[in-house]
Amino acid sequence: MMPEAILVLTHTDEAGSSLTKSSLETVTAGKTLADRLETPLVIGILATDSNAAAKSLPGLNARILGVSGEAFEKPQYAADVAACEALCNAAQATVILAPQSSRMARVAAGLAHRISGSIDTHITSIQGDEAIEVTRWLYRQRIEATITRSVRPWILLIEGGVCAAYEGHEGEGELEQVAVELPELRTNVIGTRAPAHSGQTIRPDAKMLFVAGAGWTKKQADGQVHAGEAGELILSFLQKTSASLGSSKSLVDQGGDGQPVLPFLSHMNQVGQTGATPRHPKGLATCCHGEEPHVVGWRFITERRAISLDPNCGWARGKADVVYIADAFKVIAKVNELLALKA
């Protein structure tokens, strides 16, 4: 078997000065793999100033390549894929790791095509004694598969949160600049935009995911719908805990014809079968039934609690650690009160 050579592709954050957390996590994945296979490690950096970005990698015993230029300030397909191609050509690696970031996900398959390689994405672990075996989920986190491939180069996009971010100590590696021949750029990135409603409710780095289900907008014990009150309780909770907000599909869809009942919710909040699968240490589900299609979105939530009126709900049967059989309106109101007191 041919010896493997590992390249980790990284990129900077919005500020452009340091490598993203997911890039540093992928560096850890690459280093671990290179150490195990006793093979050299190469890091590729995509940045306006890759020299400055390389400072995020002190003490890493690796060859560091970089592409630099204004064209790489903002993520953009044509420039990014050309840069990654140049880094791959310079590194001549057999296995290329990159973070499963929006920037890398946009170009990785195109890159695989250009370097005549193969690709697997959303990788949750890299294993294997001799061969490289990777795990990923299919059918929206419902089936877990372990895959290996014979084709090289093999690009792997590593999911965020599966490795610790690289933290080095003393020593700076020397960066080799790699030249990139850019095609004519027809796309101009003009910035980022946050949702218009009530600020930012999706917080990938939050310690907690708060999921609101359709029960919040159904008739309550008094026979009335209390959507306004529900909205206030949820937003207040998010504000006090800095939690990220998820929603069941049925709640997002509830308004029909595209208009949600709770105005701060959009399809981007949707967690589960046809939504996101975020990664947070804790998750609290409220007013949702905890069925498998909801719970597939909780695959990467470590501690799970739920508040439900139904003692036989899905959460109660092995899907959550703790289920409180109670009225979420009352519980969350009190939680908010306590959090305000203790703040």
Partner: peptide, 12 residues
């Protein structure tokens, strides 16, 4: 869609 529930705007 980019990280953090934000959108990146581009003109092509």
């Amino acid at each position: 869609r980019v990280e953090g529930g934000k959108h990146q705007a581009s003109v092509c």
